[in-house]
Design a protein around this nucleic acid. Sequence first.
DNA 1: TATTGTTATACTCTATAACTATA
DNA 2: TATAGTTATAGAGTATAACAATA
Lengths: 149, 149
Amino acid sequence: MARRTKTAPAADGGAATHEIGFLLQRAHRRMRGELNEALRPLNLNVGHLAVMGLLFNGEALTQQQLIGILEIDKSSMVYLIDELERQGLAERRSVSGDRRAYAIHLTDAGRQRLAVVGGAARDVQERFLAPLTPRQRMQLRELLSKVAG
Amino acid sequence: MARRTKTAPAADGGAATHEIGFLLQRAHRRMRGELNEALRPLNLNVGHLAVMGLLFNGEALTQQQLIGILEIDKSSMVYLIDELERQGLAERRSVSGDRRAYAIHLTDAGRQRLAVVGGAARDVQERFLAPLTPRQRMQLRELLSKVAG
DNA sequence: TATTGTTATACTCTATAACTATA
DNA sequence: TATAGTTATAGAGTATAACAATA
């Protein structure tokens, strides 16, 4: 059953290019590539966008909190925030009660930039998801959230 | 509408961690990490596995063909095949009719190794897909193949 | 001139380890 | 002793560019 679907690449006997891992890599690479291409003129990458997105609701988060949510290394977080700060999009502020910690605040400039950058990101996502119906997009989101860990 | 679904992480106002791109990155990173961890003791990575998988049906492919299918750079392909050849798992053979090209053949050792490595990869994929029903796995595969490009 | 493959090199992203300053 | 953050460094993974041999 399901020997060869209509959409199957001809070059593959099903050994590799049909595997979920392979498709996942392709999809991720394509999405990330287009997103970074759109973000590069602004000297930002998906990491910066993710941080700004998390700060957008208004409340500042400490680097530790950002690290916990985004599951990236603390040194990587330093670089992300350094760049955001360099561009005046976010700033480190002291946390009362713990002089080791910094709360990261989105500046007004950061908020404005996020509006632009977020729009570009949505355009990319829209192109990426173009082959899917709204219902399929929802399905994909739900399936991915189950396996994303 | 859709202000906050039941499965939403609390830390995010929907700005970032719900995005498909974010979930895609997470899922891909998790899958790739586990796969590479399983492959590392064998001095192989997912690229080597993909090449071996493509060669498994028996017919050799030239580096150009592999490059076209896997969509990676030709210099990256050189490194992948160098390592496979170094381990005796594949070999470059001259192509009659074009002395520039090499056809890559899977050796018997490569075939045996692929059986082992492929088994490990399937185990990883099984753990990765564990949260999904068989029907959901099929859905995920089909949705990904639509957006994988 | 164009193409196959190789080599050298560089870039992005991320991680590890040693460090400072607090706790 | 442990934690927040920084710095220096290294490692994947991939890409670019110059090159040799051949088409």
